[in-house]
Design a protein around this nucleic acid. Sequence first.
DNA 1: CCAAAACTCTACTAAGTCAATAGGGATTAA
DNA 2: TTAATCCCTATTGACTTAGTAGAGTTTTGG
Lengths: 153, 153
Amino acid sequence: MKLSVRGEYALRALLVLGLNYDRDVVRIQTISDQQNIPKRFLEQILTDLKSLGVVESRRGVTGGYRLARPPEFVSLAAVIRHIEGPLAPVSCVSERFYEKCSCPDESKCAIRSVMKEVREAIVKILENVTVAQMCERVKLLQGEHANPLDYVI
Amino acid sequence: MKLSVRGEYALRALLVLGLNYDRDVVRIQTISDQQNIPKRFLEQILTDLKSLGVVESRRGVTGGYRLARPPEFVSLAAVIRHIEGPLAPVSCVSERFYEKCSCPDESKCAIRSVMKEVREAIVKILENVTVAQMCERVKLLQGEHANPLDYVI
DNA sequence: CCAAAACTCTACTAAGTCAATAGGGATTAA
DNA sequence: TTAATCCCTATTGACTTAGTAGAGTTTTGG
């Protein structure tokens, strides 16, 4: 599993939305300015997260984005899988992106058996970390701020 | 960490060499035939593994490759790092491939702190698995063979 | 009602990576 | 001296990544 810039931006954006969860929607421009993410690029990423169902949007002049459900129910695993693809280091050990590999018998493949362990370890972590927990970590690391947009992510 | 085809070939080749450790050198052609790896590509990969110091070669008509040290002392981590680069999902949490990321304060970055956990988990596994152990797994999964080249990897 | 500010959809592009392929050259045993 | 090896450098075609671009659609405030 490798986190691309796109994936990192997605997580940063979700953290901003998480910190603003019970408030109003947040504009793309705001996230873009605050996090130094190219606006048009962020646009694409948020559309993508919308198709995953993890954020929702309001259009028009008072528009913006918010989380579509409480941050406790958004796992990093789901987000990263959607943006980056498989968490597994090789797709022959992936559950949802499984692809047969070239070895003659997967059940007897030693490389595969190690990669499976790696996959389990990664999944175990990312499946159990939610956006809510990430927000908690942010607050813990930086102290509480009055305005959630003051957090630096 | 994502294992590319190149990295997979490297591991397969090392397994072949590991199973042949106390025997003679193995020719590129042999590995290529047995593992269905394009010969010229495998050539590059073995040269690369040689520069890492993990294999050595003999030239000329009786030439070939062998492990440069006992398979117990070749960790997957070292090999994959050399072939693929960082094991860490983002290079700001990598020990040997560290690169500063764009966030204003790494020590307060929540994303980083999660990615650090992921890195630890991956490293812990790959640092502790050696080529020798992989060879054992192969034998265990496939039963002992008289000719080590009969193993399917 | 209309203009401005937001989101939306589709396309394009420059740079980089990946998996080979290609063409020789250097070594060594028989 | 020949043939089978390994060795070195370069190129290529397909694909991915990180944006950029242009032209909508929706909504609110004046």
